[in-house]
Design a protein around this nucleic acid. Structure first.
Length: 577
RNA sequence: GCGCUCUUAGCUCAACUGGAUAGAGUAUUUGACUUCGAAUCAAAAGGUUGGGGGUUCGAGUCCCUCAGAGCGCACCA
């Protein structure tokens, strides 16, 4: 039962009645687009507030206050409304009779499984591509953010009724793979000769490739390089990728992540989809041979004038047209990526989400252009950019050298702080804001560490049940009206905001909202707990079983909501600290 | 040089996508343990939302402009 949704519907009914009573001609749908019903920032303004009068003002050519006073009459007739007043520039503020909140808790407890169920997705397919790290080595710490963000978003969208595909694009083609093969071969030769080989500049020096060398040796003995060059390359390539992807999958598993689909770039290139996109683009007259402008500024030195096959992405808001073929006649990365997006669209038959690192920001508009062009604008693509993570050790930046290969790996971080802490912290910032990850702080057991703070609130809930010797699961609320204290009502009102939070998070693809909600819920709960000291609103009142029962029910709802929020983020609740 | 993104309290960040007096944490000052766990809570103080202009009933949010930071800039991936 979602109180906000319920009263939003009442509001729509009232609007239609108002329209017909006064014979107005405004379009209800246009008004609905702008209509809000939300808790006012300041609780002095009541329980809910709507902007209805203000958005009608233009169509009706009347001042918002006059309209509000007319609407007030309708709203006063809504069930359980105690008071309606018009305030500020024309807000209509509604205050409910108190029993609406206690009834709400009572209903919630009778419908624990479904009270916050939202059907936003309605089973619609959505494909979310995230991580997609190059298969040239295990994941490093920097990958954690995109990985957790994408995974939490996938989980969130599943929760609200989408059919979600979690997808990883393997960049197993191109120059970097050649370097990888060269590096792997050196490690293979190490196996044969039993001598350490210096990895030259430009190749991958990481120790992890020793495992690739070993696997090659186990598979082919010392005869591998007797074959012709092409075949050797292919064998080494496939073993390298296989071994490294296995490492990556294990890293992800440690973070609680399991992808549904892995798509290979190489397969895209060798498939028919590239021809397909050319056909589509040709039929729309979006493709031509032309010469691009040289890049302005210092980099223009190496530029040479050349006619290329181009996609008119500038017609779709990109700032330049983009090359589809390289000078050697092979496809550009972008062309392949276009084909890959067509592949995703064909499989998904729904919308797409890409999660990228901040270093790919400049790439977004051309992919958007590609998707619009290929789908005739019928497929929505949302690209979420994850900003940088600064790894700190007690406030000081950690030193990493990519060249030497001694970066902090993702699995190092998970081993140090645990998957749940890492997941939560990665979501305590909006995705587009940079984030400080301080190894010392995230392990701290204090309010400064939000994971701990939320977990502590949950543990406290459980501690109350332990002390009261009441079984949380079997608890049945007897008399909700015993919840009277303003602080209890405040907590209930905040619980009522949970479905709204879920909805906002899901619609805007912003899982961080769940974290912030849980932190605030914990704060309200900790506060209520401490009220037990001076205001005599302890949860357990020994000579009043009915009151204890009511308060324990409230505690149960808090614990349930925290667990629900954490489960969406795929974090385990802690029962005892 | 061009483009994209960002700039909110001393510091780290929110702000229901255009709503009312911009909120938390931290640091500072002060107070609360005979308790169902003080790993917590309460209170004070802290702001021209980077500067300037515009759009409108109303702007941190949209548009323009300037400044600063990050990332990217034919053919790489």
């Amino acid at each position: 039962m979602n109180i906000y949704k319920l009263y939003f519907n009442y509001l729509i009914e009232a609007l239609e009645k108002f329209k017909s009573d006064f014979k107005y001609s405004f379009k209800v749908d246009d008004i609905l687009k702008k209509l809000t019903l939300e808790p006012p920032k300041n609780s002095i303004n009541g329980d809910m507030s709507t902007n209805l009068a203000m958005i009608l003002s233009k169509d009706l050519k009347l001042s918002p206050k006059i309209i509000a006073n007319h609407l007030k009459v309708y709203i006063l007739n809504f069930p359980d409304v105690a008071n309606v007043n018009v305030a500020g520039p024309g807000f209509i503020n509604i205050t409910f009779k108190q029993h609406i909140w206690t009834d709400f808790i009572s209903n919630l407890l009778q419908n624990i499984e479904n009270w916050d169920k939202l059907e936003i997705g309605n089973g619609k397919n959505i494909n979310i591509e995230y991580i997609s790290a190059n298969p040239t080595g295990p994941l490093h710490a920097g990958h954690a953010r995109g990985a957790v963000f994408g995974d939490a978003l996938a989980s969130l969208l599943t929760e609200v009724g989408y059919s979600v595909t979690r997808e990883y694009y393997i960049n197993d083609a191109g120059n970097q793979i050649e370097k990888l093969v060269d590096s792997s071969l050196l490690r293979y030769n190490e196996q044969i000769t039993n001598k350490t080989i210096d990895i030259p500049e430009g190749l991958y020096p990481g120790e992890y490739l020793k495992e690739v060398g070993k696997t090659l040796y186990e598979k082919y003995g010392d005869k591998l390089q007797l074959d012709d060059q092409k075949k050797v390359f292919e064998k080494v390539r496939s073993v390298s990728i296989e071994v490294i992807m296995e490492m990556i999958k294990n890293d992800l598993l440690k973070l609680g992540i399991k992808m549904d689909v892995f798509t290979s770039e190489k397969k895209i290139i060798s498939g028919h989809l590239l021809n397909e996109i050319i056909k589509i683009l040709e039929s729309k007259n979006l493709i031509f041979y032309g010469v691009l402008d040289p890049p302005k500024g210092a980099d223009a030195k190496n530029w040479e004038k050349r006619e290329q096959l181009l996609f008119k992405s500038s017609q779709y808001g990109d700032d330049a047209d983009r090359a589809l073929k390289k000078s050697d006649g092979t496809w550009t990365y972008f062309a392949t990526d276009m084909a890959y997006h067509l592949d995703k669209m064909n499989r998904t038959k729904g919308d797409l989400i890409n999660v990228l690192g901040a270093d790919h920001i400049g790439y977004i508009s051309r992919i958007n252009a590609a998707v619009s062009a290929l789908s005739n604008g019928s497929v929505e693509i949302d690209t979420k950019v994850c900003a940088l993570v600064n790894l700190l050790e007690d406030g000081k930046p950690m030193k990493m050298s990519k060249r030497k290969g001694n970066f902090v790996t993702l699995s190092d971080v998970v081993n140090a702080v645990g998957k749940d802490v890492l997941r939560f912290i990665m979501l305590t910032r909006r995705n587009d804001q940079s984030l400080d990850f301080d190894f010392k702080k995230v392990m701290e057991k204090s309010k400064e560490n939000p994971v701990f703070y939320v977990q502590y609130a949950h543990a406290r809930c459980k501690s109350i049940f332990r002390s009261s010797k009441v079984n949380e699961k079997e608890l049945i609320l007897k008399n909700p009206k015993r919840l009277k204290d303003v602080h209890e009502i405040e907590l209930i009102k905040f619980i009522a905001l949970w479905p709204r939070t879920l909805e906002l998070a899901a619609k805007n693809h912003e899982p961080h909202r769940i974290c912030y909600y849980l932190i605030e819920l914990s704060s309200i709960f900790h506060s209520l707990w401490n009220k037990g000291k001076d205001n005599n609103i302890k949860f357990i009142v020994e000579d009043d079983l009915e009151l204890t029962n009511a308060r324990l029910s409230l505690v149960k709802v808090v614990a349930l909501t925290i667990r629900k929020g954490l489960s969406i983020l795929k974090i385990e609740p802690i029962f005892e600290m």
